[in-house]
Computed example of a mutant assay.
Amino acid sequence: MADLAKLPVTVVTGFLGSGKTTLISNLIKNPGGKRLAVVVNEFGDVGVDGDILKSCAIPDCPAENIMELANGCICCTVADDFIPTIEALMALEPRPEHIIIETSGLALPKPLLKAFDWPDIRSKITVDGVIALADAEAVAAGRFATDVAAVDAQRLADESIDHETPLSEVFEDQISCADIILLTKPDLAGPEGVAKARAVIEAESPRAIPVVEVAEGEVDPRIILGLEAAAEDDMDARPSHHDGHDDHEHDDFDSVVVDIPEVTDPAELVARIEDLARSQNVLRVKGYAAVAGKPMRLLVQAVGARVRHQYDQPWGDRPRTGRLVVIGEHDDISMDAIRAVLSPAREAAE
């Protein structure tokens, strides 16, 4: 049993676009009677996820209980960002009963767990559980992991071959660290895709880990809160590709922030994002756009060539400035090409 005097923390991890923000938005609205606080760590300096979550705030999780850290990976900025943020949340009145941390989609969760061993907080908080989200459609398509059967066959033939990629390492580390895996977007994957995704996850898991299908982020909070895993004391059961290293690299991925002019047709913007996914191997796009004649801002989120968009809230008095964060593998993306595709009018003016 976890020490009841310690404040429980749930770490929500999962690859880019797996549905972490949607899950936490639903938890904020349906917290199972718990008073929540949320820490959002984003890849890139535009607070899209934090902004979405603050719009979901309710009395049991008011906006001041939702904090953003966009200055880098929180496990690499422990003293400067992570510790002060946790201490600030614990000092709130009334005090939160549970903290949820949404990691960046490219984060390795195990280094974050090590941060909970810092003397300033280790006697005050405990990791109630690590929840990993996996996009069923993407996993079934092999985008987050290597071809398991093919790699296993090659490894049997030559154990010296390393077939890992930055994408598969991140995915595998997230799966290996989890206490529960939520298989998201099962409706897009279909029964066959879900079965294939489950097989991939089972092959990547170092131990038996429960897998629960979740659509639109809707899950009973009793399933993922109150696990009492004390994960910070269970590190050996959570292997990582980066075990034995004092730090971990973030140089495999790049992000670029693009300011975009007002668009007249959302479909045309979607087409440009789809083009980027094909031509630049872009992994993730998220942000906002202003649409001519529309008082609401357009929320845009894309995983590869799969783009979703919706009007989420009025612009109000804020400048109608569109801004997108684009994330891709370091060697595969061109910043100039991305800006040219997403903001052709601005490029032409320059």
Score class of each variant (00 low, 15 high):
D162G: 08
E97S: 08
T22R: 06
A107Y: 04
D312M: 07
I224M: 04
I181C: 00
H309Y: 11
R308S: 11
H248M: 06
G105V: 05
K110C: 05
G142Y: 06
E68V: 10
C61E: 10
L23F: 03
A134G: 08
I273T: 01
I52C: 03
F171S: 07
M67S: 11
A140T: 06
L69D: 02
A2E: 07
A199W: 04
P109R: 00
Q301I: 11
A199C: 02
R339V: 13
D336G: 04
E232W: 09
T103E: 05
V263E: 15
D51M: 12
A138W: 02
L225C: 06
P295Q: 13
A197P: 08
H163F: 14
I180E: 03
R308P: 00
I121D: 10
A2L: 05
E192T: 15
A150L: 01
A290N: 12
A79H: 08
A348L: 13
A348R: 12
D81V: 07
G19A: 05
A70F: 02
V38S: 12
A138I: 01
I327F: 01
G193W: 14
L36G: 07
A140V: 04
I333N: 00
A203F: 00
D162N: 06
I209R: 09
T10L: 01
D173I: 03
D234N: 14
V48I: 15
Q280R: 06
V127C: 10
A229N: 03
Q310S: 11
A230I: 05
M1V: 14
Q313S: 14
E274P: 02
R346K: 14
D233W: 09
R320A: 00
A134D: 00
D220Q: 09
L276C: 05
